[in-house]
């Protein structure tokens, strides 16, 4: 009993240290400007909603909701693209037979490790030729071509665990691969699709590099790019409050998705590394 209690205390202590930066961020977003950056503690004598008010009052150009909308469009498009095309490719790799399956599967695994920088400049040139730079296309279109091979792999692993007997039964009843996919595999593969959707959403929501390269007009900026704008102002303490308020707001969707689906994320992560 005492050992148990000690264990909980130790875990909570380590957890407290780990989560301190996040708590500090949230606390700071409610403090008046002057006392923010230099305070170590999480509590202040006076708390204020002023920082949030000044972010949300709509006086900025473009208004803050615009950044949220842009980030949502990009992340939403990426989610749809990944879920649809990665599950299609995964089904083919896991269940169908075709001559090039082994080499193509090996190639797919290799692309998971490929640093994106090696295709960056030609891709940029392609999108520039197509007149798509400074639009959301370069951020969303690649997801509709199943370029996030990690998720293809995740779903292949998942489909391989499903009992093959179901497929065979359907086949004996005269179903072709397309109907087997639609009526048997797809309903069963839902957990892997949810995992894919949530990871895609969070990673795209957080993504900075690609958005930095492709987006530049003020009304097309996403949240990470808008937040980046505060770096220039940061030498003046006056901008700390709004910056932290917007930071907190930008993390809320991630935390909500995480709270709702953490089981899928943790499972997906654990299986990707262990089973196979």
């Amino acid at each position: 009993m005492i050992r148990r209690a000690i264990w909980h205390v130790v875990v909570l202590a380590v957890l407290g240290v780990m989560l301190y930066p996040i708590l500090w961020l949230v606390a700071s977003s409610f403090k008046p400007n002057a006392s923010i950056a230099s305070s170590v503690g999480l509590w202040a004598d006076s708390l204020t909603l002023g920082n949030y008010a000044s972010v949300l009052d709509g006086a900025t150009d473009p208004p803050v909701w615009r950044y949220f909308l842009n980030s949502t469009i990009v992340a939403g498009g990426a989610v749809i693209g990944n879920v649809v095309t990665c599950s299609l490719a995964a089904y083919a790799f896991a269940r169908l037979r075709f001559r090039l399956r082994t080499p193509l599967f090996a190639f797919m695994l290799a692309t998971i490790m490929l640093p994106q920088h090696v295709v960056l400049i030609p891709q940029y040139t392609i999108f520039q030729q197509l007149g798509m730079v400074d639009s959301f296309w370069p951020l969303v279109l690649p997801k509709f071509l199943a370029t996030d091979a990690f998720f293809v792999f995740l779903m292949v692993q998942f489909i391989r665990q499903l009992p093959a007997e179901l497929d065979e039964a359907a086949r004996i009843d005269g179903c072709g691969p397309i109907r087997i996919f639609a009526h048997i595999t797809l309903p069963l593969v839902k957990p892997a699709m949810i995992t894919t959707a949530i990871f895609t959403f969070i990673w795209t929501w957080n993504d900075f590099f690609t958005q930095l390269i492709y987006l530049s007009s003020p009304d097309r900026l996403t949240l990470p790019l808008a937040l980046r704008g505060y770096v220039d102002l940061q030498e003046s303490a006056a901008s700390f409050g709004p910056m932290f308020a917007l930071s907190v707001l930008s993390l809320v969707p991630i935390l909500l998705f995480f709270a709702a689906f953490q089981r899928f994320l943790v499972q997906g992560l654990a299986t990707s590394g262990l089973k196979g």
Partner: peptide, 29 residues
């Protein structure tokens, strides 16, 4: 486990990088 995992999801964001910058700046926390 989920609580310890959370920083992995948040850490790549610009928001957390800004927090880091503020916490470690001169006269920061």
């Amino acid at each position: 486990r989920s609580a310890f995992y959370a920083p992995s999801l948040l850490g790549a964001s610009v928001a957390v990088a800004l927090v880091w910058r503020a916490m470690f700046s001169a006269d920061g926390a």
